[in-house]
Design a protein around this nucleic acid. Structure first.
Lengths: 135, 135
DNA sequence: GCTGGCGTTGACGCCGGGGGGAAGGTTTAC
DNA sequence: GTAAACCTTCCCCCCGGCGTCAACGCCAGC
C-alpha cells in the first residue's frame, strides 16, 4: 500500500503521514522506486494514533500505544506505559475541566453584574412606561 | 509614567505593552525624547486587559472592553459589544466543558477496559495464591 | 513521447502571545 | 564622568500539527 491509499483509508493526509514518519512515530519501508510502502499493520497503528488524537492526545503521547502494538500486544493500551498515559491524561482532563468551570462561573458573575448595572442605568434614564403600556 | 513603571504596576512586561501597542490595543502618547508616556487611565485599561486574559480571553476579544472604557463608560463591560463577547465566551466555555467531559468519559472507559483486560490476563498466567496468603 | 496523476524531498507559513537579544540613544544616580 | 538602568527599533525563536508550494522522479495510458 502506498502513502495516498493509507492516508485515504485512515481518513488523514499524506502530509500527516510524512510528518509522523519524520517523528519516528510511523516509519515506512521503501519500495524499489523509493516510494513508501505500508501494510495492514501500519493501518492499525495509524488508526490507533487517530483515535487518540481525537481524544486530544498529543502525538508524543500516542507513542507508547504505537510501540505497544508494534511489540506484538493485542491492543495499544496493553502496556503499562500506555496505562500511565491514560492516568496522566485523566488527571489533566479533570484539572482542565475544573479550571474551565471556575472561569465559567467568574465570567457568568461578571456578565450578570454588567447586565444589572445596564438595566439600572436604563431605569434611571428612561422612566417606566406603565401608563402607556396599559392603554 | 513610562513603560517600565506601567508594566510593573500592572504585573506584566514592557514586551507585552509594546505588543499591545502594535495591535493598536493600547496606544501610547510619546514624550519629547520618544519614550512612551502613559497615565492612570492606561493603567485602568491594562488592568481590564489582564483580567480578561486571566479568563482566557484572546487579546482581540478584550478590544471591545478597552474601547468601551476609552469611550468614557464607567466599566469595560458597560457596552453592548462587551456583553456580546461575554455571551459568546460563555457559549464557548459550555461547549468546551461539555466536550472535555465527553472525552473524559471515553478515556475513562478505555482505561477501565484496558485495566480489566490486563487483570484477566494476569489471572490466567498467574494462578491465585489463596492458600499461601492464608498461612 | 506526452500528459496526468501519483510519488519524493525541502523549505516556508500559520496560529497567539509574546521571549530573547542586538545595536544604539537617554536619563539618572553617585 | 561614567556606569547602570532605562528606552527605542528590528528581527528571529517557540509551541503542534500540519498546509502549501516548488522542483523534481516514476509510471500508466493513448
Amino acid at each position: 500500500m502506498r502513502i495516498g491509499e493509507l492516508a485515504e483509508r485512515a481518513g488523514t493526509t499524506t502530509r500527516a503521514l510524512r510528518y509522523y514518519e519524520q517523528l519516528g512515530l510511523l516509519p515506512a519501508r521503501r519500495a524499489g522506486n523509493g516510494y513508501r510502502a505500508y501494510d495492514e499493520g501500519d493501518l492499525r497503528l495509524l488508526r490507533e494514533i487517530r483515535m487518540l488524537q481525537d481524544f486530544g492526545f498529543g502525538l508524543e503521547e500516542t507513542r507508547p500505544f504505537v510501540e505497544c502494538l508494534r511489540a506484538g500486544h493485542p491492543e495499544g493500551d496493553s502496556c503499562p506505559a500506555s496505562l500511565e498515559v491514560y492516568r496522566r491524561k485523566l488527571g489533566e482532563l479533570d484539572e482542565c475541566i475544573a479550571r474551565l468551570q471556575d472561569v465559567r462561573a467568574q465570567v457568568a458573575g461578571q456578565f450578570d453584574r454588567a447586565v444589572r448595572a445596564r438595566d439600572e442605568l436604563a431605569a434611571v434614564q428612561e422612566p417606566p412606561v406603565c401608563e402607556l403600556v396599559k392603554e
